[in-house]
Simulated assay, not measured.
Amino acid sequence: MLNLITHDAIIEINLARPPVNALNVDLLRALRDAVDNAVASGARGIVLSGQPGMYSAGVDVPSLLGRDRDGVRDFWREFFQTASTLAMSPIPIVAAITGHSPAGGAVLSLFCDYRVMAEGPFKIGLNEVQVGLVVPESIQMALRRIVGAYRAERLMVAGAMIESGEALAVGLVDELTNVEQVVTRAVVWMQGMLALPSNAMLKTRAIARADLTAIWAHPEALPMDGFLDAYFHPETQAVLEKLVARLKKKD
């Protein structure tokens, strides 16, 4: 599910769950463990990459649909814990967005320090509303701190998926390059960070990210019941069932 690649003091965690790196419980747990292990092993930076053309298609909806409330709660608990692990990482993380990155894939990138995306007709966005899901405040806040309050509202309420060029223009990503160079550019950016005086860089980073870490330090305390109520709303279930039906026709 993951490929681990060493670039000197930088560990690349490459998502490798064909065909689209959909996020299920096993992949989320593996990602969380990989981040923790990288930190414990002395890595000074992490690059989180996907496959050429696809970073992550987000939540594995077919595996989620049909679960009872406890099963759905277990999944979202894993998702929020993984987001927390990224947000709370004591070392910098770069998202190497190697292609399309809807919904959960885009969410993971919000907790990274920097985002390099493949240029071209690749799309990114929090399109949860389009599939009937509510974007919780803890994730809305993560987007607001990157693109600003008004732009975040417009993107999330519409469930907009935007191409890489627009994503750069609004600040959702920091840099574009051709798809073959995304990881290379992510590593180069990280090398620049690691060339800085470490104590000053890391402590300044911690201060700058204090708003994010204050919310995500205790993911188990995030309000879950309201989110679950919205997930099980009849409208949401109907939209998700239609989505899964479309996906099955493509197979």
Rank of each mutant, 00 (worst) to 15 (best):
L172N: 07
A43I: 14
P90M: 11
V239K: 13
I10C: 01
V157N: 11
A152W: 03
N24D: 15
V94N: 13
A245P: 00
S41V: 05
K249I: 03
M141W: 10
L176C: 06
V173Y: 02
G171N: 09
V107N: 13
V107Q: 10
V244W: 14
D60S: 07
T236Y: 05
N3C: 09
A169Q: 13
S101P: 03
S41W: 07
I10G: 00
A103E: 07
R246D: 13
W216K: 03
D33R: 15
I10E: 00
L64W: 12
P223T: 13
Q81V: 04
V61H: 04
S63Y: 04
M88Y: 00
E180T: 14
A230T: 06
P102V: 00
A210F: 06
L28W: 08
V94I: 12
V25K: 05
A16G: 04
A87N: 01
K249M: 10
V179H: 11
A118V: 11
V182Y: 03
G53C: 08
A158R: 11
L133Y: 08
V188P: 08
A87M: 02
D36A: 14
D225S: 10
V72G: 00
I13T: 01
F122L: 04
P52Y: 10
M201N: 06
M54P: 01
P62M: 05
P90V: 10
D251Q: 15
F80L: 01
V47W: 01
E163S: 10
P219W: 09
A149K: 14
A167G: 05
V173S: 03
F80C: 00
R205H: 06
V35M: 13
V129I: 14
A142Q: 04
G120H: 09
L2D: 10
S138Q: 03
I139T: 04
M54I: 15
D70S: 13
Y231I: 09
I97A: 00
A30K: 04
M161D: 12
A167W: 08
L176R: 01
M88H: 06
V59Y: 00
A9L: 08
G226E: 08
T6N: 07
D26W: 12
D113M: 11
G71L: 08
Q130A: 12
E220W: 05
E175V: 03
A16F: 12
A160R: 12
M156V: 06
N24I: 01
L108Q: 12
P223A: 10
E119A: 11
R205N: 07
V239C: 13
A38S: 14
A167Q: 03
N3E: 10
D68Q: 01
A9P: 09
D26Q: 15
R151D: 11
M88V: 02
I10S: 02
A238P: 02
V35G: 02
V179D: 14
S109A: 11
P121I: 00
K203G: 01
E119V: 05
W76I: 01
A38Q: 06
Q130L: 11
E220Q: 15
P102C: 08
Y114H: 10
